[in-house]
Design a protein around this nucleic acid. Sequence first.
DNA 1: GTGGTTTAGTAATGGCCATTATGAAAAGGT
DNA 2: ACCTTTTCATAATGGCCATTACTAAACCAC
Lengths: 203, 203
Amino acid sequence: MGRHREFDVEKALDAVLCVFWRKGYEGASYADLTEATGVERPALYSAFGNKEALFRQALARYYERYLDFIPEALQLPTAREVAAHILYSAADLHTRYSRHTGCLGINGVLAGSDEAEPVRQALIDARAVGEVQLRERFERAKAEGDLPETAKPTALAAFVMAVSHGMAVQAKAGFSRDMLEAVAEQALSTWPTGSSELSGQSP
Amino acid sequence: MGRHREFDVEKALDAVLCVFWRKGYEGASYADLTEATGVERPALYSAFGNKEALFRQALARYYERYLDFIPEALQLPTAREVAAHILYSAADLHTRYSRHTGCLGINGVLAGSDEAEPVRQALIDARAVGEVQLRERFERAKAEGDLPETAKPTALAAFVMAVSHGMAVQAKAGFSRDMLEAVAEQALSTWPTGSSELSGQSP
DNA sequence: GTGGTTTAGTAATGGCCATTATGAAAAGGT
DNA sequence: ACCTTTTCATAATGGCCATTACTAAACCAC
């Protein structure tokens, strides 16, 4: 019983996500959030909790809705394809929406006041999870002969993530998708080859 | 005539620079700034102007004091050395001080409220200057045969900057210098070779 | 010394921030 | 129809923010 909720929680969260994407955690005010969602403050509080909880839910949604190319990539047959899929998908994502470029996980809180420290840590942790998965995937590739014995999975994973993060920063500076794809291509041109494959220029 | 200034403007600016480096533009409050400098608010205003002007002066100082490795790099004889010097210097800088990791120019305002837009634009512009210089250097390298005819100076410059930015983000996430150097090494691992040079692993 | 001028430090100002108290409105079970 | 429960919206609360009057102190020229 009781009165029904008049707004769509999922849609509100999507709108919130976009605001955080563009403005970061501390840069987004409740004035922004209510305007974007069309939902009054108290309703946001009752539906999502406080600002930090709201951001965490938006972040989770971001990972499942926008960073789904990472689990997708991990299932590809070769390490090079994994890396290529991640880099080209990132180039696309970071420039797909002109109103919120770059990456929520990076824009969020690279820096901020001390009060935002827990949120910053949450972003760092989330980022680390992806990197670990990537490293494990490259370790497998090495075991499978897909990467040479001399390859360092940890460094390769860090490298792919670094390029992706760098593209996110450049997207924030207004880089075009084509430019980011050129960066991805250059990054992949350095890809080590295993025993069973020859390297080549990217697509 | 008139009373003498009792604090050292240069030292105060250095302290301010560190605060902005760690907390970004909007994340740094005047409470932080007065504590770090030991200078009261009105004195900061009279010496530097408002917060935005103060940040711009700190940014200029950052470029001349910490990013001096960029002009340094541009004078090295080969494109590969230029890239290597930038990447290894960035790895060092971004992890040199545990209290303010990453890059001021990137931490500053990747995202923020609308009021910080002019500052964000200033950072974007400053970043772009470095990238243009790097591209021009690579164009010269290509003309000199130091880079192959097929090399794309624009993409190479963007790539080097992207890796550097990515390392800055990773430094913020707590990466060690060694890890960042491994990223730099990977980035350099198959630098395109010109007619007069052979590529090799980095230092 | 004295007057003019610049700086120092205290404390005020107005605005925006996240958060929430308050009470009206809507829904469903009985 | 009434009572309980949940949501809604207005508006308040207290804190922190950047910025600045204002007063006292330090300095130089004369």
